[in-house]
Design a protein around this nucleic acid. Structure first.
Ligand SMILES: [Mn+2]
Ligand SMILES: [Mn+2]
Ligand SMILES: [Zn+2]
Ligand SMILES: [Zn+2]
Lengths: 138, 138
DNA sequence: GCTTGACTTAGACAAAGTCCATTGTAGGAT
DNA sequence: ATCCTACAATGGACTTTGTCTAAGTCAAGC
């Protein structure tokens, strides 16, 4: 998305080949790649890009609110370019496939005051788990 | 809980000092310790217990359904002895405090068929985030 | 085209977790 | 009570994921 790149340049981001490539890799719907996966795809386009730069760039994109960190997987964080429409995730317990989903209702409203222990609750993260059609299809 | 130990012995678990100590450490409400924290507390009661044994025992307790793995923290998995009453978690974004919570309603019902992509959805995991009273009180 | 501070790099380091060969022991058998 | 043996514990090597740093490179403004 050159949209994204424009926006970042406007925010004073110095444009480099490495950052362009990372932004290109993080493009599309239902994209939830680990840092290593991003690195592997970036290397295919720009062989000399380093792991550290991928980590740095992902971290910056997260700070800037352009990419979300998702932790559906207990092993590695995943990076989600769909940061502008709030959503939750549906994960296949067998193969790990991840889809963006948009449930009805607001789970925040379902948490009664008596269950808040005085916390100021500001956010909720929901992960649905099950089997994808491929993995369920006997 | 000797309840737990009894149940496990009934299932053919060989009872050892190490397993007893790990089970003792995992006792109480709102307990969500990392493996290393479990190890530290276990060492206080049984100095020679090894890290590997703590990991093995926690893994077995999870397989047996007696302990839940919780991943509210992106760093280390946490182990939750409250496995018999389904619940969700409320996490302080600042200090990491974790409380068990029991929301109303069933978030599974809030996911329309059109948002299921053919998945067989069987479970949902909800994490509320905010600030605990201590961290919110400036 | 210079200059310069921001960016990139390779590799060391760290934290969380797994694996394995060896040693120890719980609990049934005698 | 003692023996046996399959199961469990141990320490350390190894892997994975991520962070940090010192030195080299380059985008962009002048
Ligand atoms: Mn997503
Ligand atoms: Mn819990
Ligand atoms: Zn699947
Ligand atoms: Zn707090």
């Amino acid at each position: 998305m050159s949209d994204l790149l424009e926006r970042l340049r406007g925010r004073g981001w110095r444009m480099t080949a490495q950052r362009r490539v990372v932004a290109e890799v993080l493009n599309g719907e239902h994209v939830h790649l680990t840092a290593d996966e991003v690195h592997a795809r970036a290397v295919a386009k720009l062989p000399e890009i380093s792991r550290a730069t991928v980590y740095n760039t992902l971290g910056e994109l997260v700070s800037l609110g352009e990419v979300l960190e998702v932790t559906t997987d207990k092993r590695a964080k995943r990076y989600d370019p769909n940061a502008h429409r709030p959503h939750h995730h549906l994960v296949c317990a067998r193969c790990g496939a991840i889809r963006d989903v948009h449930p009805l209702g607001n789970p925040l409203a379902d948490l009664p005051d008596t269950e808040r222990f005085g916390f100021t609750v500001s956010d909720v993260e929901v992960t649905y788990r099950g089997l994808c059609p491929d993995c369920a299809g006997a």
